[in-house]
């Protein structure tokens, strides 16, 4: 993973990140649906660091507590995550 840098961004990015957390939170409701194949454990909410173009920040996502595999749903990838990517690209 690339070196993490504290993000210094305006309110817009912060608002979006808040949204990402919200959406991620919604996914969390589906925790008992998903299971890590290798570890046989249910995917549980956990702190994950996501990063792009030198900016990193922590979010809560569904992950396997043993191997660390993280689930990114379609809704998150094409919704708020894409929005953050675009915002960072224009920074």
């Amino acid at each position: 993973m690339s070196s993490t840098m504290l993000i210094r961004t305006g309110w817009k990015l912060r608002a979006i990140i808040k949204d990402v957390k919200k959406v991620a939170g919604k996914d969390l409701g589906a925790e008992n649906i998903f299971e890590c194949f290798k570890c046989g454990l249910p995917m549980e909410p956990g702190k994950v660091t996501v990063s792009y173009l030198g900016s990193s920040f922590p979010v809560e996502l569904l992950k396997c507590r043993q191997c660390g595999l993280v689930l990114i749903t379609e809704e998150l990838a094409l919704g708020k995550m894409l929005e953050v990517e675009k915002t960072l690209e224009d920074k």
């Binding site: 996501v50 990063s51 792009y52 993280v70 379609e74 995550m81």
Partner: peptide, 14 residues
Amino acid sequence: HNAYSHRMEVEGNN
């Protein structure tokens, strides 16, 4: 059934 992508790096998936 479906395919999608993102550019962000997610710790634990790389």
